[in-house]
């Protein structure tokens, strides 16, 4: 269910989760722990090496809902920008 951050399928520099389009999948590379929110994101399951899928944007464009560890969590762009991911190219390109 999880792959290592340096998985050969997900090479290259990680990108912020907020940039991914709905329908894409990614593996979490790192979470910004500078502030309180980073700790909470870890508690919600946004842990490095975990797979996250982008479900959909809210009708007004923000927030965005994600599927993570069996739950649907929505985050605003500002929060999702603190999570860096390796996009899953096979899925994202499809």
């Amino acid at each position: 269910m999880s792959s290592l951050p340096d998985d050969p399928l997900a090479p290259g520099a990680p990108v912020p989760l907020a940039q991914l389009a709905p329908g894409s999948r990614a593996v979490i590379a790192s979470v910004d722990l500078e502030c309180g929110i980073g700790r909470r994101l870890l508690d919600l399951g946004f842990v490095p090496a975990t797979v996250v899928s982008v479900l959909r944007r809210a009708p007004l464009g923000d927030p965005i809902s994600y599927e993570i560890r069996g739950t649907r969590i929505c985050l605003r762009r500002s929060e999702a920008a603190r999570i860096l991911v390796h996009p899953d190219r096979n899925e994202a390109g499809a």
């Binding site: 502030c35 309180g36 739950t71 969590i73 605003r76 929060e79």
Partner: peptide, 11 residues
């Protein structure tokens, strides 16, 4: 203060 981050579960 920064307060709580926004996150919400869609059950």
């Amino acid at each position: 203060g920064e307060g709580l981050p926004f996150y919400m579960e869609l059950p």
